[in-house]
Write a protein that binds this DNA or RNA. Sequence first.
DNA 1: GGATCATACGAACGTTCGTTCATAAAAGCG
DNA 2: CGCTTTTATGAACGAACGTTCGTATGATCC
Lengths: 208, 208
Amino acid sequence: MTQDGRLARGNESRRRILERAMATASQDGLEALSIGRLATDLGVSKSGVFAHFGSKEELQAAVIRAAGAVFAREVIAPGLNLPPGLPRLLGLCDGWLDYSQRRVFPGGCFFYAAGAEFDARPGRIRDLLADARRDWLRLCAQTVTDARHLGELTEAADPVQVAFELDALACAANSTALLLDEPLAYERARAGIRDRLRALATRPDSVP
Amino acid sequence: MTQDGRLARGNESRRRILERAMATASQDGLEALSIGRLATDLGVSKSGVFAHFGSKEELQAAVIRAAGAVFAREVIAPGLNLPPGLPRLLGLCDGWLDYSQRRVFPGGCFFYAAGAEFDARPGRIRDLLADARRDWLRLCAQTVTDARHLGELTEAADPVQVAFELDALACAANSTALLLDEPLAYERARAGIRDRLRALATRPDSVP
DNA sequence: GGATCATACGAACGTTCGTTCATAAAAGCG
DNA sequence: CGCTTTTATGAACGAACGTTCGTATGATCC
């Protein structure tokens, strides 16, 4: 019963559409996504693309969900594979910088681009992007908390503050590398992150 | 001869258009700027607005120029009014955070929004935004250099690196305050900036 | 006062946008 | 086999887009 070739074909089409949509949205923005252009690029009909989502906003929401899955696979999962605490924190930061630098999305971090685009436009799309960002910051802060409990970071390290600062450095690398075409920015972020963590570590030389 | 009422009226119209355009562009993006909507909002004709610029790209460029003047007046000038070195560096950072927090532009920092929108779209607009960003980072780095020469910061403070890190914290505040509706982010950035500068200062208690 | 200039207008152009709908093609199921 | 379900198509819709053009309104200048 679960072997319906029609559904399988439909899911594959949907996947192809979202793949392309994520790429163009990371470069040109979620609002610049156009159903017609998407259809032309993929060599299918406009109404065919439309039918998969029912509205442009639903397409945008689906793109955000798909990008979240990519982010989970490329950044979160490898990080969670590392031991909790400081190694995981460093792994998450480096994983994020790699994900931006490798251009998993051609326009750099999808959520940086989309977040900046919708941060002043109330609505469902903004809420979804805010949720994604909150999740990421929460994970970072929780990992700082773990590191404190493990005695790797001093009690002076406020988890929310540290998460804010590490994320700030990573985002700045993404932004600078893209806008100023300056790949060195990634090294600056890595240096800044290590500097910051060393200053908060109980054993500074434990930060590679 | 310089008293041409026609030119004066034209310049005033242009000014009103750009004022409105900067505000909507900071919220909805430079590409979402629409000549028709701009005209409707201002109660004038579409072709009247168009005639002032000749093309949409020229309008976008003019908006960037106008936003640069606002930034110079609101952030740069007050900063340059302070004594060079550490006080000016702190003044520039606080001035930037104030400018974002006061919502001089309703969508937060104009250049953060526009930069993120065009960082992956080659062309004249991207180049103008890259220039603006480079100028800002250069000013910050130069001020760090001054502080070093004045003996306020240690030789370990790499001007470009410090500028990168301070700007990163400020941008993260703008982004977090807007997307997550979290004004506390500005305090986090202020704390992070002071922390960072104290660590690099020859007299740490000289950082208020 | 008449010629000249810049500003603003209204109508129209061709395109693209998101969306709707009737219909064809193909796969599963009785 | 027919009947249903799912995917995909092509034609068409009204609205908005950037842009062009001919024209009207006044202020400036000779």
